[in-house]
Computed example of a mutant assay.
Amino acid sequence: MIFDDTPCTLGEGALWHSDLNALIWFDIIGKRMYLKPVGGQRRHWDFVDHVSAAGIVDANRLIVASSRALLLFDLRDGTRTTLVDLEADNPVTRSNDGRADPQGGFWIGTMGLNAEAGAGSIWRYCRGELRRLFAHITITNAICFAPQGDSACFTDTDKGVIMRVALDADGWPVGDPQPFIDLRAEGLSPDGAVMDAQGGLWSAQWGAGRVARYDAQGRFDRAVMLPAAHISCPSIGGADLDTLFATSARQGLDAPGPDDGCTFAVTVDERGQSEHRVILPSSVS
C-alpha cells in the first residue's frame, strides 16, 4: 500500500506521468518536488518558493506552480524558466491544487499561507494567457475535469461542497458553478480530486483517512481507506491506469503515525483518464 515512505509535511499535487511510468508529487511546506518510477528510485528537486502542482507538457517538461509563478521545468537537468507570474505581488498567498484540462490549459488554485479567509483564487493558464476564473476562495482544491471535457469541478475545502461548472469548446467556464457533491452533513473536508474515465470523482478527504469515489451523478460509490489521517491528493495511474495513488500530510497532527505523510498506491477496478498535456504558446520553445 505504501508507494513511497518519504514523510511529507504537506504532500500534494499527485500526478501520473505515463511517459516515465512515474508518479510526481510535492511537499509544499518542504518546497520540494518528487518523482518516482514504479519499481525505480525516487528523485527530488528543491525550490526557493513553495511548489504545489504540475502539468505535463511533454516527456521531459512540466509546468510547475510555485507561490509566485508558473514555471517551465525540465526534468532532464532541473532548469526552470518563468512562464508567467502568479500573484507575485501578493505576499499572503501561495499556489495549491492544480491540474491540466482536456483543452490544453492548466488550472491552478491559490490560497493564503495561513488559510486566510477568501484570500485564494482559481486561475487558468492557456496558450500563454493567465486569467482569473474564480475569486474569494479560502482553500482551493478538487480541480478535475470530466472525460468529455465539458465540465470542471473544484472546491473551497473550507465550505465542504464540491462545485461543478460547464466548459465551452475552448475550456473556459460557462455560467455559474453549481453544487455537485455536498459533504457538509457528513462533516467531511474535500481536498484534492481526480476523475476517472467513467466520470467518477475520487475525492481525498482531509482528516478522514480515505479517498471516496462519487459516480458521474455525484452519488457516493465507495471509499478506499488509507493508513494516514490527512489524505490530500489522488491520482490514477500505473501501466493499466488502475492504480489509485494518494499523497498525505503530517501537518496539523499532534502525534503523527509512521504512515502519516507517506504516499500510497492501491489497485482499483476503475480505469483512470490519461493526464492531459499543457499546450504552450508557439513563442515558448
Rank of each mutant, 00 (worst) to 15 (best):
A204G: 13
I236P: 03
I181S: 04
T82C: 05
L72Q: 01
M163K: 12
A100E: 02
L71S: 01
A204H: 14
Q205M: 13
A146F: 02
G199Q: 00
S66G: 10
T155F: 05
R131K: 12
F220D: 10
G175I: 08
V194G: 06
T9F: 14
S95P: 11
R131Q: 09
R271M: 12
S274D: 12
P190L: 01
Q251Y: 04
L226I: 07
A117F: 15
Q251P: 02
D77M: 03
S95Y: 09
D49Q: 06
R219H: 15
I139D: 12
C233K: 11
D196E: 12
W202N: 07
H230N: 15
L23S: 06
Q41R: 13
S67A: 15
T157G: 06
M195Q: 11
Q273F: 00
I181R: 03
A53H: 01
W16T: 06
S66F: 10
T140W: 09
R124S: 04
A115V: 13
R42W: 11
A14W: 07
G109I: 01
S66N: 10
H44Q: 14
I231H: 02
R219Y: 11
G120D: 09
S121I: 03
M33K: 08
G175W: 00
L188C: 11
Q251A: 10
E275Y: 05
A65S: 15
D85V: 07
E270C: 15
N60D: 15
A204N: 14
T93Q: 12
R184K: 09
K36W: 04
D168T: 09
G39T: 11
D215H: 13
